[in-house]
């Protein structure tokens, strides 16, 4: 599993971390049940605060991507791999948005509106 963060970016570090791990689950470079590095390990490895990693892990747990277990650390949740049809749908929507010259901001606004 690959995790990338850029401390110089304007996006908060915990969001970058969560996005990176989420992406690994969606593109299947990690499989269900695989152990994630411990928060302490990942924090020292990336040179970020441990609470930043924990916050990202908690967000991913709330989204159902990972399971946090006391003493066992974080593992990829068994329920995490159900994004295939969604990903296909999004590919189609983005392609459609491009042909109609709809901007990313406008598209996300539409999705946000629909999701409410």
């Amino acid at each position: 599993m690959l995790v990338r963060v850029d401390p110089a970016s304007e996006t908060p570090l915990f969001e970058q971390l969560a996005a990176s791990i989420r992406q690994s689950v969606i593109d299947k470079s990690v499989t269900a049940g695989e152990r994630l590095p411990s928060a302490r390990e990942l924090a020292s490895s990336l040179g970020v605060n441990m609470h930043t990693v924990l916050r990202a892990y908690q967000e991913l747990r709330d989204e159902g991507f990972i399971e946090l277990r006391r003493g066992r650390g974080a593992i990829i949740a068994a329920t995490a791999h159900s994004y295939d049809t969604l990903a296909d749908g999004i590919t189609a929507i983005v392609a459609e948005a491009r042909t109609q010259n709809v901007s990313l901001a406008a598209l996300t606004a539409l999705i946000r509106e629909e999701y409410k």
Partner: peptide, 14 residues
């Protein structure tokens, strides 16, 4: 990996 010079990466695998 393409990206800015300030990016940091962590790869782990078994």
């Amino acid at each position: 990996i393409a990206g800015t010079t300030t990016q940091r990466v962590h790869f782990s695998s078994t």
